[in-house]
Nucleic acid binder design. Structure first.
Ligand SMILES: Nc1ccn([C@H]2C[C@H](O)[C@@H](COP(=O)(O)OP(=O)(O)OP(=O)(O)O)O2)c(=O)n1
Ligand SMILES: [Mg+2]
Ligand SMILES: [Mg+2]
Ligand SMILES: [Mg+2]
Length: 1231
DNA sequence: ATCCTCCCCTAC
DNA sequence: TAAGGTAGGGGAGGAT
């Protein structure tokens, strides 16, 4: 993720980096620990009323200042700075070396000058830093007497400055003017406060400036006051120059690309310089690298040349047809789109901060592992060890999470150095004007958000109603006619972001980057007592360094921290304590909860649920039912303030992609191909940057929905259907041409008319790190062989196949259209028109619009999967609502059992040609309405079996009416399964097993988009004698909350269908138990018992019990999935214990809030889980005894107890349980 | 049971 | 004019 910008920007000795100050951290801790600072802080902040916050804030500001003074007084305790340099890979190191050479050439204007920027300046410190960086100067993040030669400050008087006697305090215009005139001006006219004469001399000496420079005739040249206020334009032009040097666009990453990409004079000069430096001092290795680079460059050039010719040809073809080149195929459309796309930037920055922080921390860890070279290093280790210890202890008391988020970020950045914009309603947008503008407002200032409202009534985060982020400018203008629109300043946002992350890193190393303007910090190590002060200190620092306000929220988990931050906005901080959380959250709108966006909010609203309290009242069962086991439970927990997510400090990327869903209006397939060719390199360069290759290539297409109007939004995609298809390659790739080829192939297969394409995306997944790939010993040929051996033989399609497929799709399309039609009418009746536009739900609820009404196709279908009703209705108990059921013509006179019992067939029987791919539309889900039918089917089936004269063909026919064969055992098994279904109340889904065999053909799925030669059949064994027969697979009750239910298309390769012989059924779950274990059994025992109990509960219709047991089962499954290891006795024990604890926690919250009903529910859960943990009380008694024996009284003595326990030789599982109980037991005597 | 693909939703 | 990108979580359907 190292952009050119990045590499260059960080190559200076005084570069911007994540500086991490161990010292400032420990100093803070000490300050926090001593009681001298705070007169306010006698109460614990956990219980402090919010009204105290103001007071604290003022107090803390002072304290922050005192903190700085402290550090000034103790110059030895300066923070240590770690740079990327410490942890970049050696390759990147080399790249940087090259840029160093270039940079040095730029200017040495400020050589020997080291500045430290004090407080808020205009331009802000980030800009000054860049300037210094470009002109040979040094920028210090922290003040150090021995290093800093100039203190830069705008505001006078500043009490801090008065304390500085040795250094020069200079106005920033000194820097700006010096750059402008390209000479170092004397500082005299710019000096804000002059120290002693000695200081001046020192300064001159230190700088060893030539006399003529110092006596520059600047006064003559500068007609205006040197301390004048700079215009933004001034500043920006300087900044622009800075950007010229630092490399502009983060989209152009590849170093070699970068050197050849621009043909500006500057670049050429730089290259020349580099070459010269190369000659004189680069080492062999470096030269070799260059050679390689050159070769690659050449290759690329050839490649591009070829492409260019192709393109020319294409364009000529188009011209001949009299067509213009579409906008999306213009030169540079893709890069320029991304360069202007705010969302692209947002996304890019997020991943950037994620990887950077990850790398930074990793490097720190390796560093720790090494021997400390200095004494200081040792100390530091000790300190960190100490901190870890502290943290561990703190965790017993719960974590302390802080969420810091910039206030109206983009707008605030625009206000830097613009006092005139300070209190104005502001919007950041591309558009320059117009009431009609469909440009998005990326960010609205708080004045715009609250426009026209009495701000005193704004008590809750739920209330604001003015301009929202994501809203169209036209609408924003309507709401707020005074709105001032300012342009994006992406470079500045990025700089400010880096600045705030630097600050974050100086407070905690456990950081989850959330966005360029926010992060979650684990600040447990500061303890509860002073945490609000720390928050204020951070906010203060951010304001000082960037000139932008932010807010901070603190809580015992991520949820509470986020909510607290939101509530504190703008420009505030808050600690949302556990005690007040439930009551506070209860009154919040559901949309303020994470994971509740547009759709979920709407679904909730339809049930009359508006507040989080409403949601909790509806119950966790309902939520899980509606939103799936995962989200349902999460939401329920959020509703009562619970959230056990860990901070995600390090993640592995799973996918890399690039989408353009704007400005896509193409007319021919060829044009789509050309566009894909533009997009592929984008994806590839991101892959390369991340150092990965991927095996799965996905093409995403937004296809204009049938009948959808042209979108109102300029260049917008409008109402679309999303489609995607992927191809898995034998080996990972990051080759642009390969990916282009594949996605073009996929697109052709998707059979989407080019003029209906509204959005295109390419994604690569199944990623592998390049380093690992290189280590792998297999040759490409070997890998290919492995692939072909592991997969079936790919085939080519033919025209006939495509025709069938198209027909099938058309049919589906038609059906979909009908559905929509119906739905649209219904919605019109209800007056419910939804819009296609998006935007922050919470912030922006779109308003109706004639033209852009967006109907979600899926919603209607969820409620009623449209069955292909066979004509015979043996069971006339009909749904009344579906009066307009289509009367379908029966194709065959043959009446199958399938028809008789109204069991929908999975697919029409199709004739399959050998080696051809055939589309088969399968219909899923025998839903409730079919249950009765199934039971009837079963009875008949049973009768038939009794007679003993049932052939497998009958079984097949009964189900699909198409296949011959004989398999009594199979039939019996089907019966068994049917019984089970009837008994367990499972729903069914139907599924295809295909077939295959014979000669040189193989069963296989089609690898979309890939063209392979037909391979001779390899020796691996194929499943022979298999038959394409629908079978039944048990599935738990579906809980998909959104989207299309019940239909999908399978593409089946068939051959010699006539020879099929057997039926294959999914084996029932079997449990190979045995193994003896604990009282509650091995994991296998446990699972078995659980399943059995579920069965019993089902039979005896103990609904609540069943629900609890199912919950246990699902949760356990998740646990297993997430965990790196398979289930063990201990993990099961721990899991059960945790679940029980979790319910206890909920129970506590509920009963303390008077919700006896819900508390009872949790108690029931606890009781049921306790059945599986019969030993718990016993163990606890034993544990207590041990604790008494050891005489331990506090959590600190945990280890002592554990040692004692270990001597008693409990089993692993028992130890696990006891371990989790120790804290409780030790807490009791304390209390 | 477990894996894969496709799709949906959310967040900034 | 305007730049509606992207990653990850998660569910269903299907295959093995
Ligand atoms: N639909 C959106 C939402 C956000 N952003 C950009 C602009 C915002 O300034 C920035 C940060 O998003 P936040 O959600 O943090 O919103 P703000 O910082 O603007 O306001 P707040 O004070 O509520 O955090 O991301 C955007 O371009 N489009
Ligand atoms: Mg923000
Ligand atoms: Mg934010
Ligand atoms: Mg929300």
């Amino acid at each position: 993720m190292f952009t050119e910008d990045h590499v260059r920007g960080t190559d200076s000795p005084n570069d911007f980096d994540f500086s991490y100050s161990e010292l400032s951290l420990s100093a803070k801790r000490k300050r926090g620990g001593s009681n001298d600072v705070s007169p306010v802080n006698t109460k614990s902040p956990r219980t402090r009323a919010t009204s105290d916050v103001q007071e604290i804030r003022a107090d803390v500001t002072k304290m922050g200042q005192r903190g700085i003074r402290e550090s000034l007084e103790e110059p030895d305790r300066r923070p240590r700075t770690y740079r990327f340099k410490d942890y970049m890979t050696s390759k990147k190191e080399k790249l940087r070396a090259q840029f160093d050479t270039e940079r040095e050439g730029e200017s040495n204007l400020f050589e020997g000058v080291t500045i430290w920027v004090n407080g808020y300046t205009s331009p802000p410190s980030v800009v000054l830093r860049d300037i210094m960086l470009l002109h040979g100067g040094t920028y210090e993040h922290y003040y150090t007497k021995s290093k800093v030669t100039h203190i830069i400050a705008t505001n006078l008087p500043d009490w801090r400055i008065r304390e500085l006697t040795d250094e020069r305090v200079v106005h920033p215009n000194w820097i700006l003017d010096s750059v402008e005139l390209n000479r170092l001006l004397p500082i005299d006219p710019y000096v804000r406060y002059k120290g002693g004469e000695r200081g001046t001399r020192d300064l001159r000496e230190a700088l060893s400036l030539p006399a003529e420079r110092v006596t520059s005739p600047m006064k003559v040249m500068m007609s205006s006051d040197p301390l004048r206020s700079r215009t933004v334009k001034d500043t920006m032009s300087l900044l622009k120059r800075a950007q010229c040097m630092t490399g502009r666009d983060q989209n152009h990453i590849d170093l070699t690309n970068a050197t050849e990409a621009t043909n500006t004079k500057k670049t050429r000069e730089m290259e020349e310089k580099v070459r010269q430096a190369d000659k004189t001092r680069q080492e062999d290795e470096e030269r070799k690298r260059r050679e390689e680079e050159k070769v690659q460059k050449k290759r690329r050039e050839e490649d591009e040349e070829r492409k260019r010719r192709e393109e020319e040809k294409n364009q000529k073809v188009q011209k001949e047809r009299g067509q213009d080149t579409p906008e999306a195929l213009r030169d540079n459309f893709v890069p320029s789109f991304f360069a202007s796309s705010r969302l692209h930037h947002l996304s890019t920055w997020k991943t950037k901060f994620q990887t950077e922080i990850q790398m930074f921390l990793k490097s720190r860890i390796t560093k720790e592992g090494e021997e400390g070279e200095e004494e200081e290093e040792e100390e530091e280790e000790g300190e960190r060890e100490d901190m870890r210890e502290t943290r561990r202890e703190e965790r017993c008391d719960g974590r302390i999470i802080m969420h810091v988020d910039m206030d109206c970020f983009f707008a605030s950045v625009s206000r830097i150095g613009r006092e005139d914009l300070r209190d104005k309603p502001l919007a950041v947008s591309h558009s320059t004007s117009s009431k009609e503008s469909t440009a998005d407002v990326a960010c609205a200032s708080y004045e715009a958000r609250n426009f026209g409202r009495n701000t005193h009534t704004l008590l809750s985060i739920d209330l604001p109603t003015g301009v929202k982020n994501g809203m169209w400018l036209s609408e924003a203008k309507k709401l707020c006619p005074n709105l001032i629109v300012v342009p994006y300043q992406f470079d500045l946002y990025e700089k400010v972001s880096k600045e705030i992350y630097t600050i974050f890193l100086s407070y905690s190393r456990k950081i989850q980057p959330v966005s360029c303007d926010e992060a979650l910090l684990d600040v447990s190590h500061y303890g509860h007592d002073h945490i609000l002060r720390i928050a204020e200190e951070i906010r203060n620092q951010i304001l000082q360094r960037t000139g932008c306000p932010c807010s901070a929220g603190i809580g015992s988990n991520i949820l509470l921290a986020r909510l607290a931050c939101k509530m504190a906005k703008p420009n505030g901080s808050r600690h949302l304590t556990d005690a007040e959380s439930i009551e506070t959250i209860r009154n919040l709108n559901v949309t303020s909860l994470p994971n509740v966006g547009r759709k979920i909010a709407k679904k909730l609203e339809m049930e009359g649920i508006v507040t989080a309290g409403d949601m909790v009242n509806k119950g966790s069962d309902w939520l899980r039912d509606q939103f799936g086991p995962r989200l349902g439970l999460t939401l329920y927990h959020y509703g009562i303030g619970r959230d056990d997510r860990d901070l995600q400090t390090a993640t592995k990327r799973k996918r890399i992609g690039s989408d353009v869903n704007w400005g896509i209006r193409l007319s021919t397939t060829q044009q789509v191909h050309l566009f894909l060719e533009q997009l592929s390199p984008e994806v590839c360069s991101r892959l390369k940057e991340a150092g990965v290759k991927g095996k799965a290539i996905t093409l995403k297409i937004k296809k204009k929905r049938e009948g959808a109007p042209e979108p109102l939004k300029y260049g917008g995609h409008g109402i679309v259907d999303n489609m995607s298809r992927s191809t898995t390659l034998p080996s990972p790739t990051d080759s642009s041409s390969q990916i282009t080829k594949i996605v073009c192939g996929i697109f052709d297969k998707m059979k989407i008319p080019a003029d209906q394409v509204r959005g295109i995306g390419i994604h690569v997944s199944k990623l592998k790190e390049v380093v690992e790939i290189e280590e792998s010993s297999e040759t490409p040929q070997q890998r290919l062989d492995i692939f072909f051996r592991s997969k079936a033989n790919p085939v080519q399609t033919n025209e006939e196949t495509e025709r069938v497929r198209r027909e099938e799709e058309e049919k589906r399309e038609e059906e979909k259209k009908r559905e929509e039609e119906k739905k649209r009418e219904e919605e019109k009746e209800r007056g419910e028109i939804e819009e296609e536009r998006r935007g922050d739900v919470e912030e922006y609820v779109p308003v109706d619009s004639e033209d852009e009404l967006g109907l979600d196709e899926e919603e209607e279908i969820i409620r009623a999967p449209p069955p292909h009703k066979p004509p015979m209705q043996k069971h006339p108990k009909k749904r009344k609502g579906k009066k307009e059921e289509k009367k379908k013509k029966k194709k065959s006179t043959e009446r199958t059992l399938h028809d008789m019992f109204n069991l929908r067939r999975a697919a029409p029987a199709v004739t399959v040609e050998p080696n051809h791919i055939e589309p088969v539309t399968t219909t899923r889900a025998y839903t409730d309405e079919n249950r009765q039918n199934l039971q009837d089917f079963m009875l008949t089936f049973e009768e038939a079996l009794k007679g003993g004269d049932l052939r497998a063909s009958d079984v097949s026919r009964m189900i699909s009416g198409q296949i011959e064969g004989k398999d009594l055992e199979g039939a019996k098994r089907i019966l068994q399964r049917l019984r089970r279904v009837a008994r367990d109340g499972y729903k069914w889904r139907r599924m295809y097993h295909e077939c295959l065999h014979e000669g040189n053909s193989a069963l296989g799925r089609v690898y979309d988009g890939a063209t392979f030669d037909i391979h001779p059949l390899s020796t691996h064994s194929l499943q022979k004698d298999r038959v394409r027969v629908p079978s039944l697979q048990m599935t738990s009750k579906p809980s998909k909350p959104f989207g299309l239910h019940g239909k999908s298309t399978a593409f089946v390769l068939g051959s010699n269908i006539g020879r099929m012989r057997s039926i294959r059924l999914i084996p029932l779950n079997s449990f190979n138990i045995q193994k003896r274990g604990l009282s509650f059994g091995t994991p296998e025992d446990f699972t078995k018992r659980l399943n059995n109990d579920i069965l019993i509960a089902t039979k005896s219709q103990q609904k609540d019990r069943l629900s609890v047991l199912r919950k246990v089962k699902t949760q356990l499954q998740y646990q297993t999935k997430e965990g790196p290891d398979s289930l063990t006795e201990e993990s099961v024990a721990k899991f059960l214990f945790k679940m029980s604890q979790s319910s206890k926690e909920t129970e506590k919250i509920m009963s303390s809030n008077g919700r006896t009903d819900l508390a009872q529910k949790e108690r029931d859960i606890i009781t049921i889980i306790a059945e599986y943990l019969p030993e718990l009380d016993d163990l606890k008694t034993k544990l207590e005894a041990t604790v008494r024996d050891t005489g331990a009284t506090s959590a600190k003595e945990t280890k002592k107890v554990i040692d004692a326990l270990e001597k008693l030789q409990y089993s692993k599982a028992e130890m696990t349980l006891m371990r989790s109980m120790i804290k409780d037991v030790l807490d009791v005597p304390k209390a």
